[in-house]
Amino acid sequence: MSAETPTPSAIRMHRKSRVLQVDWEDGTSFNLPCEYLRVFSPSAEVQGHGPGQAVTLVGKEKVSIAAIEPVGNYAVKLIFDDKHDSGLFSWSYLHWLGSNYDENWATYLKRCEEVGYKRKEVPAG
Rank of each mutant, 00 (worst) to 15 (best):
D85C: 04
G125K: 09
F89P: 06
E113R: 11
K118Y: 00
V19I: 15
P123W: 07
S86M: 08
F40K: 09
V19N: 06
E113W: 03
P33G: 08
W24M: 06
I65Q: 12
S64W: 03
A10G: 06
Y93A: 12
M13E: 10
L88Q: 07
E61F: 11
V76H: 04
Y108Q: 14
C34P: 03
L57Y: 02
A3K: 03
N73M: 04
S92I: 09
K62W: 03
L20W: 01
E121S: 05
G98N: 05
P123E: 10
L20D: 06
A10I: 04
N104Y: 07
N31F: 10
L37V: 04
L57R: 15
A106Q: 12
W96S: 15
H84S: 01
R12E: 14
R38W: 03
S2R: 12
E103W: 07
S43I: 01
F89W: 02
A44P: 02
Y117W: 15
A106C: 01
R12T: 14
D102P: 07
V122W: 04
E25H: 01
H95T: 07
S92Q: 15
S92T: 13
Y74T: 10
K60I: 00
A44C: 00
L97S: 13
V122L: 09
V39I: 11
W96R: 14
S41E: 04
G59D: 03
T56C: 12
Y101T: 13
L78P: 04
E61I: 15
A54R: 15
K118W: 00
P33V: 07
P6F: 00
S99Q: 11
Y93Q: 11
S86A: 08
F30A: 14
N104D: 07
M13R: 09
T107H: 09
G50Y: 06
E121D: 04
S92M: 06
E4K: 05
V115P: 10
Q53A: 02
V115G: 06
E121P: 00
S43V: 01
F30L: 04
G59I: 02
Q47V: 00
A44R: 12
D81N: 15
V58E: 11
L109V: 08
L109T: 05
Y101R: 12
S41A: 05
L57M: 12
L57G: 08
K16V: 02
S86I: 02
F30H: 15
R119M: 15
E113K: 13
L88W: 02
S29P: 03
G125D: 13
H84W: 03
L94P: 07
C34A: 14
Q21S: 13
S92E: 15
Q47M: 06
K83Q: 12
V58K: 14
D81K: 09
W91R: 11
Y93P: 10
S92R: 10
V122M: 12
S2M: 08
T107S: 09
G27R: 06
T5H: 05
V63G: 13
G59L: 04
K16C: 11
E35M: 11
R15A: 13
